[in-house]
């Protein structure tokens, strides 16, 4: 924490109240949007709103805004690592049948001429 006084960094209550209001508004918004047909974008919007809400909580309630770089790196690293896990796992799953390779147990595929 940059503030090395005995009380630490005291945030004005106004900031907390505003964060709270923003979070409530975003909750209403995300619930409301779910009732509008946006196709795939429903998911996108839901995630964007969730990320914004989480950011509000982290920055103000958890005070990351007032922390120096190190703490931020910790959280960013954890998220980055989580994205490694998700992205590479999904990448495998969804590219499994790109190549028309016959599987050994698929007799029919083996007897077909190669494309």
């Amino acid at each position: 924490m940059p503030d090395h006084s005995l009380t630490g960094h005291v945030v004005p209550s106004r900031v907390y109240i505003l964060t709270f209001v923003a979070l409530i508004v975003l909750t209403v918004l995300t619930t409301g949007v779910a009732y509008i047909d946006l196709g795939y974008f429903n998911t996108v919007v839901a995630l964007v709103i969730a990320v914004s809400k989480a950011t509000c909580v982290v920055l103000f309630f958890m005070g990351l805004k007032y922390h120096k770089g190190l703490t931020r790196i910790v959280i960013i690293a954890a998220l980055l690592w989580l994205s490694f896990l998700i992205v590479l796992t999904l990448a495998d799953m969804h590219s499994r049948d790109w190549a028309p390779l016959p599987q050994p147990w698929q007799k029919a595929a083996l007897s077909e001429p190669h494309r």
Partner: peptide, 20 residues
């Protein structure tokens, strides 16, 4: 607050899928 954040993600991911 962290536990709160987890819920912030769980809510749309579990309760709000697929358009209502």
């Amino acid at each position: 607050h962290f536990v709160d954040i987890v819920w912030i993600f769980l809510f749309p991911l579990l309760y709000l899928i697929g358009g209502r």
